[in-house]
């Protein structure tokens, strides 16, 4: 059951270009959290910016009551978030939304584009615990946007990177690396989060090869609990039926919703 909690910030620091990690204690939310769910964070007592910011659960350690967020500074909200210091209280609602389905004893590929890697770390932890063989593919523009290698390595999974400028790992599109990585062995399941054109390419590839999987969407939200109907997304093959990203998602089957294919 979700709840509202005043978390205590443990640390909040920059880990890459515009990328920050915040750790806070929120035992109530941590105890309930599943990979793929999110928290809706209020940025102080301001009336501007007014709305909470939905952020993925990067990592959760329920025993320690600790939640880690990975976020990219994209505007005023995330800028304010980066100013929180250790010991400060932060107003958090969560865990919200439906998380990933967790498969067992399978060979699974996790594909994260940019800061879309965030929900895939907590997912990896839970997938490893369920005896899956996990391969993580992470693509960014450049090596200074890669900051998760250490955390994935600790979980003992294979973690491959692609950068557009070739400054680290495979040079080029993550989806091109994906095709090479997926060819040699059969893949049972794909999880992905990142820019929609990337996820759209992943979904198309999965569909061609008969691989099922799930993706996680990001969207501007107001309530985060399914009340305002602001984060609507069209279902595939319909022009009228919408789902709520906050409540019906943010995780959906790869082929369920219409994705943006151009721009990001």
């Amino acid at each position: 059951m979700p709840l509202a909690e005043k978390g205590t910030v443990i640390s909040n620091h920059q880990t890459g270009r515009d990328l920050w990690e915040m750790e806070f204690l929120a035992p109530g939310i941590a105890a309930e959290s599943k990979p793929g769910q999110f928290v809706n964070v209020r940025l102080g007592d301001y009336s501007d910016p007014l709305l909470r910011r939905p952020l993925s659960l990067y990592d959760v350690e329920p025993d320690a009551g600790r939640i880690t967020l990975l976020y990219k500074i994209v505007g005023r909200g995330t800028q304010l978030l980066s100013r929180y210091g250790s010991g400060q209280l932060i107003d958090v609602m969560g865990p919200l939304g439906l998380g990933f389905d967790l498969v067992q004893n399978r060979r699974v590929i996790l594909i994260g584009g940019g800061v879309g890697i965030a929900p895939l770390l907590f997912l990896t932890r839970e997938l490893v615990a369920r005896h899956n063989e996990v391969i993580v593919l992470h693509g960014t523009g450049s090596s200074d946007e890669l900051c998760s290698q250490g955390r994935f390595s600790k979980l003992g999974v294979e973690y491959k990177v692609a950068t557009m400028d070739g400054s680290s790992g495979y040079k080029g599109l993550l989806t091109d690396m994906m095709k090479e990585a997926l060819e040699p062995l059969p893949t049972d399941y794909i999880y992905t989060c990142g820019p929609e054109p990337m996820m759209s390419a992943v979904a198309a590839y999965a569909s061609q090869h008969g691989i099922s999987g799930q993706l996680s969407l990001e969207e501007h939200m107001a309530c985060g609990v399914g009340a305002c109907l602001g984060c609507a997304r069209k279902l595939k093959e319909t022009d009228t039926a919408y789902v709520k990203i906050c409540k019906d998602g943010p995780v959906f089957p790869l082929d369920a919703v219409q994705l943006s294919t151009g721009g990001s």
Binding site: L51, C228, G230
Partner: peptide, 18 residues
């Protein structure tokens, strides 16, 4: 309801077109 985007934050407020 209306096509997305349906909401947008504005200074000390928000727009909605649900």
């Amino acid at each position: 309801g209306n096509p997305a985007p349906r909401i947008y934050e504005t200074p000390a407020g928000m727009l909605n077109a649900i």
